[in-house]
């Protein structure tokens, strides 16, 4: 049985078509990334899959339960961790956990046992009697995830799980999610951190302007754009002025400065290495490191969504 099955989903808001006939499925136990620029339709899809919003047409089912007509049964097997750490600030961590458990009909003994276990995993047990109001951003995020796990979900919706978090919270959350995957929990992950999706996901779907533009394993997607290769080079003296010169070297399609390195996009990395070495020699620069890189998932994302790099930022093309 598929964990998620979406068929010809359309969602319109007046004259705006937010989702335009999207179809995909997520296998049980799979970690599935759902990527797309802002306004692409990610949130609309999640709201439909969690039964908060109704589709204009098409169907979606969770473990065989139609989300529109069998909403409660479908939701019972889900854990939802929204982008905002939507915990109740005026309740303690323990009260937040208990409330979440009661909403998901977890029995008293089970919810107390489960809450203790989860809070310990998230290193919040010692603070269980403190109101969430005094928690840091990372602690609130951990509590949000803990609340999403109280009903032992078979399917976990994770919306931007690690966005803007401290290292400790980041590590804990990634470790917990990795553990859940090993236990067979299906994870539906939306993130702006494409590298995170690359590391965590078995497959990713890229949505743009309401259409699914690609859906495959990250490595398979990268193979589709082998022309986007690059070399990364660092000199003993790096300055922003060099960026312009490097971008004008032959065979270099585009150059970016990333920290103490330059990233040069090309279709022929071996030729560009020679050109760069000659450039270094001419300008009396010492090459500290030079690496050839294949296309990243971010490259695939940019190519498929029609976004454009400008310096280190990404801008949408209308």
């Amino acid at each position: 049985m598929k964990a998620i099955e979406v068929s010809h989903l359309i969602k319109k808001f007046g004259s705006l078509t937010a989702l335009n006939d999207i179809t995909f499925s997520v296998n049980e136990g799979e970690t599935f990334g759902f990527l797309g620029p802002n306004g692409a339709g990610k949130t609309t899809t999640i709201r439909i899959l969690t039964g908060v919003s109704r589709p204009t047409s098409g169907t979606a089912s969770i473990f065989g339960h139609d989300i529109e007509h069998d909403t409660i049964a479908a939701r019972q097997s889900m854990g939802i961790v929204s982008e905002n750490s939507n915990v109740y600030d005026d309740l303690t961590a323990w009260q937040n956990m208990m409330f979440s458990a009661e909403l998901y009909h977890v029995g008293r003994k089970e919810r107390e046992k489960k809450a203790s276990e989860i809070l310990k995993v998230f290193e919040l047990y010692e603070r269980r009697n403190d109101k969430a109001h005094g928690f840091s951003k990372g602690m609130k995020r951990r509590l949000t995830l803990a609340m999403g796990l109280i009903n032992s979900p078979r399917l976990l919706f994770l919306d931007e799980p690690t966005s803007g978090l401290d290292v400790q919270s980041n590590l804990i959350i990634r470790e917990v999610v990795a553990g859940l995957v090993l236990e067979g929990v299906t994870v539906f992950l939306t993130t702006h951190n494409i590298e995170e999706a690359n590391i965590m996901c078995d497959r990713v779907a890229i949505i743009n302007k309401g259409h699914i533009v690609a859906i495959d394993a990250p490595e398979s997607l990268k193979k589709t754009i082998q022309s986007v290769q690059s070399i990364e080079v660092s000199f003993d003296h790096n300055s922003a002025d060099q960026l312009d010169e490097l971008s004008r070297l032959s065979m270099v399609n585009e150059a970016q400065k990333a920290g103490d390195k330059f990233k040069l996009y090309t279709e022929d990395p071996s030729q560009v290495i020679n050109v760069v070495m000659a450039y270094a020699h001419t300008h009396n620069l010492k090459v500290i490191s030079i690496t050839t890189l294949g296309p990243s998932l971010e490259d695939v994302f940019i190519r498929l969504t029609g976004l454009q790099r400008t310096g280190e930022k990404i801008h949408a093309i209308d």
Partner: peptide, 14 residues
């Protein structure tokens, strides 16, 4: 405003 209402709307209750 604090998005906790979304939590109620997506819970397995009518």
């Amino acid at each position: 405003r604090v998005k906790t209402f979304e939590r109620l709307l997506s819970a397995p209750i009518s």
